[in-house]
Design a binder for these strands. Sequence first.
DNA 1: CCCTGATTCGC
DNA 2: GCGAATCAGG
Length: 173
Amino acid sequence: MNWTDERVELLKKLWSEGLSASQIAAQLGGVSRNAVIGKVHRLKLSGRGRTTATPARPKKPATPTAAAPKPVSSRPAPAPRPVAATLGATALQVQFDAEPARPALRATQDVVVPISRRLQLVQLSERTCKWPNGDPLSEDFNFCGNECADTGPYCRYHARLAFQPASERRRVR
DNA sequence: CCCTGATTCGC
DNA sequence: GCGAATCAGG
């Protein structure tokens, strides 16, 4: 996967929007969060308001010249990431647009619906994320449908939203 | 253990 | 330039 102009733009957008590197990586698809972070740094847009107050890193042990026998172990396989990144940008656009200036209704701004496959209920299988989108009574009600781990009914990010809101709340400061 | 971004360094 | 490995922290 290479960094096309569009992908870089989306990266910038999402980053400035305050999304985490891993979330952006998921949005883009085909890249790891490390890749995103690395790209962000290279683009020199690491600073981003007050997301993670990182007091700058001192240093790293570096390389002890000759006393560093690094046992190169085999790679755990990069893990295939299909991810149909077809219309992600458009979907996101809609979400952010629906926010003129409403400080009061700002509950979870970093809750972004990842690229949804918009599956119907009957299309769900054991390994599809069962995170619902929209109104169950509405016609366009659908499910995320992205690949989910066998550890739960949701994909990685929806699982986080569902089960780990505590650490998110803690960050509010 | 989960996560976050930051940095280094081989490619 | 890229990104995995690593680091440092919440």
